[in-house]
């Protein structure tokens, strides 16, 4: 797995564990399925953990865990499955301020979209990272310098910039 943030490739601090037994055996931050999050949090109240869930998960199922988890990993079954983009918007709207990870065979060409919707990092299977190395992700995210949609991305939208320019003039 390769982990890419806006700044480039980074080390993954989290260890994935699919069962509660495996999770309890992990040293350090652990990334677990949503279904065992409650059990884990009760057993290890002081251990940092993240939850992993599919892009199809309803926000109601995710909400109760947002206060305790420091990372939410949204799993993309395919790069063309955009459900995760809407889910991450809803998670951000709930006030979550931890790490938001898009996990799956994403392509570099959607890195900018992922970031604009609220993801902070992308976790790629190795096969993808070999074909589209980190440099391509860094280049792809900057191909478009402006966006029209207010409420997405870091800076103001084109619509907002126009308004600002008119007010300033």
């Amino acid at each position: 797995m390769t982990l890419i943030t806006e700044a480039g490739a980074v080390e993954d601090r989290f260890t994935r564990a699919d069962t509660i037994e495996a999770a309890l055996a992990v040293e350090g931050p652990v990334l677990i399925p949503l279904a065992i999050a409650d059990e884990f949090a009760t057993a290890r109240p002081d251990t940092e953990f993240g939850v992993s869930l599919p892009g199809s998960a309803p926000i109601e199922d995710v909400k109760p865990h947002l206060a305790k988890a420091s990372l939410v990993a949204v799993e993309f079954p395919a790069f063309a499955d955009g459900r995760g983009f809407s889910l991450v918007k809803k998670i951000v709207r709930e006030g979550f301020s931890g790490t938001l990870r898009a996990s799956g065979p994403l392509i570099a060409d959607e890195f900018a979209d992922a970031l604009a919707c609220g993801f902070t990092e992308v976790e790629l299977p190795e096969t993808m990272a070999n074909r589209q190395p980190v440099q391509q992700w860094m280049a792809a995210k900057d191909t478009m310098s402006e966006h029209y949609q207010s409420g997405y991305g870091r800076g103001p939208s084109i619509l907002q910039k126009r308004l600002a320019a008119r007010k300033g003039a």
């Binding site: 063309a80 979209d113 966006h147 949609q149 997405y152």
Partner: peptide, 13 residues
Amino acid sequence: RQWSSLHPEFVWL
């Protein structure tokens, strides 16, 4: 047209 152009959330419908 402007709002929908490369809308980050809605390009993988």
